[in-house]
Every structure is written in structure tokens, then in C-alpha cells.
């Protein structure tokens, strides 16, 4: 197991390094921040001074080298706009985004798996067909539109739930969380639902497909021949088998949730990373964009690692292969 984790870690470091190169070069191609930063009335000498101060006069590889040296020490440069460490700005926003993404993931699993398993066990019933039809809607409706409709219905027309912000937060270990207060929870629900819709549809489809496949396996019939109860067969024999693809896909999609949260956070004014990156891109705030992307890359890599480990816990066959490898 530890050999397996160490090997994955080495791969992860390689991936992060390559991504840093791509991100850095990519952001430099997008545009010149100097135009955005400098007062239009500044003279040539002033412009030259700013360019020199920001280190933008050096060749790209030197800039990258400088960036990499500092990055290894945890310094991703200062934001051009806020004049604060970019990493700090991004990290400050992580808990809000994470809370939103985790809530969305939780909703997707808690609602999606029972619905999917039901649809898989009774594929011909009216309820199952309704579930499957709705899941197509979940896939195809654009997130921002659904978000607006949710606000329209729940906040504007019914007045049940608030439409923006995080509400009251509770602080634990210096990090603010919304879900710990009732007010925060009501603020969290709509954006989480909005963000989860796509994943929810995915989970339903995965759980249904898995169930349809597993239910016809010989070992399910054998479990019935052993006289096990229907509940035991569904919740142990079937569930554990369909969880393998669900966990894999969801783990990978968790990164997607964080990326998608850009839209939801904008619609619901949720003060997370997504909102930050939109503003940073708008202002061509290079260090902030780079810092955001690097954080996302590290997150993705880390999530993949966790998925691999989880996967090996769920599926003993994977474990064996890696022990041998």
C-alpha cells in the first residue's frame, strides 16, 4: 500500500510541475497586464519603471525560473491588483468553495444513489422512467439558468430561501463555515442544489447502469439462493459493487465541481474562489490567475490520489494488483 502511494505521489509531483509550466506560459500569452495596471496618462519612463518592478522585462524563461524558485517556498507572487500574496487570496476563498462543492457532492450522492438504484431495480415502472427523464434535464439545462430559476422560485416568488451570500457563519480553527448555523444552511442550500444538479444526474445514471448490470450477475442470484433478505442483497451485495464506478467518477468530478462553481458562485454571489478568478481574469491579474490555477491543479492531483486509495479499499482486486506491482 505504501509503495503504491509513494509511486502515485511521484507521478503527482511530475504532473504539478508540467502544469505549472503550461499555466505560466499560457497566462503570458493571454495578454499584457501592463495596459490594465498603468494610468493611461503615465509617461514612457513610468511605464518602463513599472515593467521593471514587476519583473516583466526579463525573458520568459527567467521569469519562470524566478517564479518556480519562489513557488517552491510557497510564494506565488503578489497580486497586481490587491498587492497581497496571491496564494493567500486564493486560499482564503477555498473554504467557501469547498463547502459549496462538498454540499453539492453530498446532495448528489444522497439523492442520486437511491434514485438510481430504484430505477435500476424497477426499470419499467413509471417512477423510474420519470427519474430517468428528469436526469436528462439535469444534464442539459445550463447551470446559470437553473440557478436563476431557483432564485426566481424559492427566493423571489416563495420567499423561502435567501438568494445570495453565505449568511451567518461559524468559525472553527479560524475558518468560517456556513453549514453550522441555520441561517448559513439556508444560504447554502440553493447554490449547493444548483451546483449538484449535473452531478446528481450523473450519479443517477451511474447507479442505474451499475444496478442493471450487477442485478443480473450470478452472485446476486446465488445470494438469493442463500436465502438472504432483499435488503441485505441490495445494501451489501449490490451497493458495494455499484459504488466502485460511482466513487471513481465522483472523485474525478469533484474537481469539476470546483471548476463549475465559478458559474454558481457568480449567480449566487457566493464568495468563493470562482468569483475571485473571474475578477482576476478580467483584470489580467497574472499572479492571482496562476495561483488559482496552481491550487486547482494541486487539488485535482490530490483528489485523484484519494480516489485511487479509496478505490483500492472498495475493490480488493485493485489492491492485489498493486501489491504485486
Amino acid at each position: 500500500m505504501s509503495v503504491f502511494i509513494i509511486r502515485r505521489l511521484m507521478q503527482a509531483i511530475l504532473v504539478v510541475w508540467i502544469m505549472s509550466l503550461l499555466v505560466y506560459v499560457g497566462v503570458h500569452i493571454v495578454g499584457d497586464p501592463v495596459d490594465m495596471l498603468i494610468n493611461p496618462e503615465a509617461d514612457q519612463a513610468e511605464i518602463a519603471r513599472v515593467i521593471r518592478d514587476l519583473g516583466l522585462d526579463r525573458p520568459l524563461h527567467e521569469q519562470y525560473w524566478y517564479f518556480l524558485k519562489n513557488a517552491l517556498q510557497g510564494d506565488l507572487g503578489n497580486s497586481f491588483i490587491f498587492n497581497e500574496p496571491a496564494l493567500k487570496l486564493v486560499v482564503q476563498r477555498i473554504p467557501a468553495t469547498f463547502e459549496l462543492a462538498l454540499a453539492a457532492l453530498g446532495l448528489a450522492v444522497v439523492i442520486g444513489i437511491p434514485l438510481g438504484v430504484y430505477a435500476g431495480l424497477k426499470p419499467d415502472s413509471k417512477i423510474s422512467q420519470t427519474i430517468m427523464a428528469s436526469s436528462i434535464l439535469g444534464f442539459s439545462l445550463p447551470t446559470f439558468w437553473v440557478g436563476l430559476m431557483l432564485i426566481m422560485f424559492f427566493s423571489v416568488m416563495m420567499g423561502w430561501l435567501p438568494s445570495f451570500g453565505r449568511g451567518d457563519t461559524e468559525t472553527i480553527f479560524g475558518v468560517e463555515f456556513s453549514f453550522l448555523t441555520w441561517d448559513g444552511l439556508t444560504h447554502l442550500f440553493l447554490p449547493a442544489l444548483n451546483l449538484s444538479l449535473f452531478k446528481l444526474s450523473l450519479v443517477i445514471r451511474l447507479a442505474r447502469a451499475g444496478t442493471r448490470e450487477v442485478v443480473h450477475q450470478e452472485y446476486i442470484k446465488f445470494a438469493r439462493a442463500k436465502g438472504l433478505s432483499q435488503n441485505r442483497i441490495i445494501f451489501v451485495h449490490l451497493m458495494k459493487n455499484i459504488m466502485i464506478p460511482v466513487v471513481t467518477v465522483l472523485g474525478l468530478e469533484f474537481g469539476g465541481l470546483i471548476a463549475f462553481s465559478v458559474v454558481t458562485e457568480t449567480v449566487f454571489s457566493w464568495p468563493g474562489m470562482g468569483k475571485l478568478i473571474i475578477d482576476a481574469l478580467h483584470n489580467l491579474d497574472r499572479p492571482l490567475v496562476v495561483a488559482y490555477l496552481m491550487v486547482i491543479v494541486v487539488l485535482f492531483v490530490f483528489i485523484n490520489l484519494v480516489v485511487d486509495v479509496l478505490y483500492s479499499i472498495l475493490d480488493p482486486r485493485v489492491r492485489l494488483r498493486d501489491l504485486k506491482g
Partner: peptide, 30 residues
């Protein structure tokens, strides 16, 4: 009755045991 008074052995041993459950689990539950 199933598994207690009348039990069954299936054709393909590769398919009859649940791949993600340990043998003891599958026996004890029976």
C-alpha cells in the same frame, strides 16, 4: 427455505461469489 433447507450450487464458480466481499462475510451471512 432457500439456503437453509434447500441450497444450490451454481455452474460457474468464477461468478457465484461476490467479488467485493470476503469469504467469511459471505459465509457468516448465510
Amino acid at each position: 427455505l432457500r439456503g437453509a433447507r434447500i441450497s444450490m450450487i451454481f455452474q460457474d464458480p468464477m461468478m457465484t461469489l461476490n467479488p467485493v466481499l470476503r469469504v467469511d462475510t459471505q459465509m457468516i451471512e448465510t
